[in-house]
Simulated assay, not measured.
Amino acid sequence: MAKKPKLTHRQKRRVAANRKRRIQDTSQPEAERNTDNLQAGKVVGRFGKHADVEDLQGTVSRCHIRRTIDSVVCGDQVLFQAGDETGEGVSGVIEIVQDRHSVLTRPDFYDGVKPIAANIDQIIIVSAVLPSLSLNIIDRYLIACEDINITPVVVLNKVELLEPDERATVEQQLAIYNELGYQVYYASCKTREGIDEITALLNDKVSIFVGQSGVGKSSLINQILPDAEELVGAVSNNSGLGQHTTTAAKLLHLPTGGELIDSPGVREFGLWHIPVEQVTRGFIEFRDFLGGCKFRDCKHLNDPGCIIRQAVDEGKISPARFASYHKILASMQEGRPSHSGQT
């Protein structure tokens, strides 16, 4: 499917200026602002060139997206024009995307930085013992949360697969996140361990489940919302990697009044779009030491006078987290499009 032509920077600036005038210019009568026929709604699904928009009465319309709109994601508050349903089931057009109070993004090699969800209050980072527990992946998501100042929650799923000694080891590994002040929960869709506690976390908030494919995000959602009927996939026997079962983002309403966004799983979460300084601050235990190194351009590795490295040696910073930090920095350099294009 051909992608819609991208706007130039000048066109984007003109679109943004026109949009701002349409929303904020109250000096003109309402009828002259071209918004009199528009309805307010929230994006509850995104499918290719179209998006599902729920109006204030709860009616969902599948809408076209104006070419002048840069991006539309689940959670967006929009103004749209309803219309008669076409042969494709499309019955409206999104005209304006309202300002977002938060947005989760991830880098894409071809499209640059891509929004994943908007106007969210907390991010539920789901990991699992199968395909494998990756603390580095958890750290990546924590950095993304810290960068946009959204509360993260860590959930380890499929804990029924652990033997008692294995669970003790895993709990010891994850204890560092508790010590840093992050909430950590253990869950099992088989035994329902942790399901009630996780459900309570979602009350009256807009949350998003993120994590690698195959960690059981859709299974957890089926436990929290049995009527959601999310597709559940297995882990590939050949690769050990999860199979993508969620192919489009969708927003689900919770009986308690909260909302949950389910996003397509990603096997890796790149961070090359975030400045190195922000990645460093994303490791919250580093913050008390930042600015105290001997050299301003300290790489926090083997540099003389590095007080972060000294804090690791003194047991004030976890060696595992310190190693994860440098692994992330290395992967950022390897994953940048300019670097990849040279290899």
Results as ranks from 00 to 15, higher is better:
Val103Asp: 05
Leu156Ser: 06
Cys145Asp: 10
Phe109Thr: 10
Ser134Tyr: 13
Thr105Ser: 07
Ala118Asn: 10
Pro152Asn: 07
Asn119Met: 14
Leu104Ser: 02
Leu104Tyr: 05
Val153Ser: 05
Asp139Glu: 14
Ile150Tyr: 01
Leu133Val: 12
Asp139Trp: 09
Ile138Val: 13
Tyr141Leu: 15
Ser102Glu: 12
Tyr110Pro: 00
Tyr110Gln: 01
Leu130Lys: 14
Val103Lys: 06
Thr151Tyr: 11
Ile138Tyr: 04
Leu142Gly: 05
Asp121Met: 10
Asn136Trp: 07
Ile116Leu: 14
Arg106His: 06
Pro115Met: 09
Ile116Asp: 00
Ser102Pro: 08
Ala117Ile: 12
Ile137Val: 14
Thr151Val: 10
Ala128Glu: 10
Asp111Asn: 12
Lys114Leu: 09
Leu133Asn: 10
Ile116Gln: 01
Leu104Phe: 04
Leu133His: 10
Ile125Trp: 05
Leu156Ala: 11
Asp108Trp: 03
Gln122Asp: 10
Pro115Ala: 13
Ser134His: 13
Leu142Thr: 04
Val153Gln: 02
Val154Arg: 02
Ile124Trp: 02
Ser134Cys: 14
Leu130Trp: 06
Ile138Met: 11
Pro152Gly: 13
Ile148Ser: 00
Ile120Glu: 02
Ile148Gly: 00
Ile137Cys: 08
Ile116Lys: 00
Val155Ala: 09
Pro107Asn: 08
Ala118Arg: 04
Ala118Phe: 03
Leu142Arg: 04
Leu142His: 06
Ile143Pro: 03
Pro107Arg: 01
Thr151Met: 11
Ala118Gly: 08
Leu130Cys: 11
Val113Leu: 12
Leu142Met: 08
Asn136Tyr: 11
Ile125Val: 15
Thr151Lys: 08
Pro131Cys: 15
Ile137Thr: 07
Arg140Val: 09
Val155His: 03
Asp121Leu: 10
Ile150Thr: 11
Val129Glu: 08
Leu142Asp: 06
Tyr110Leu: 02
Phe109Asp: 09
Ile123His: 02
Ile150Phe: 03
Tyr110Gly: 00
Ile143His: 02
Ile148Asp: 00
Val155Thr: 09
Arg140Ala: 07
Cys145His: 06
Ile137Tyr: 09
Gln122Phe: 13
Val126Asn: 07
Ile150Ala: 00
Lys114Tyr: 03
Asn136Met: 14
Asn119Lys: 13
Thr105Val: 07
Ile123Cys: 03
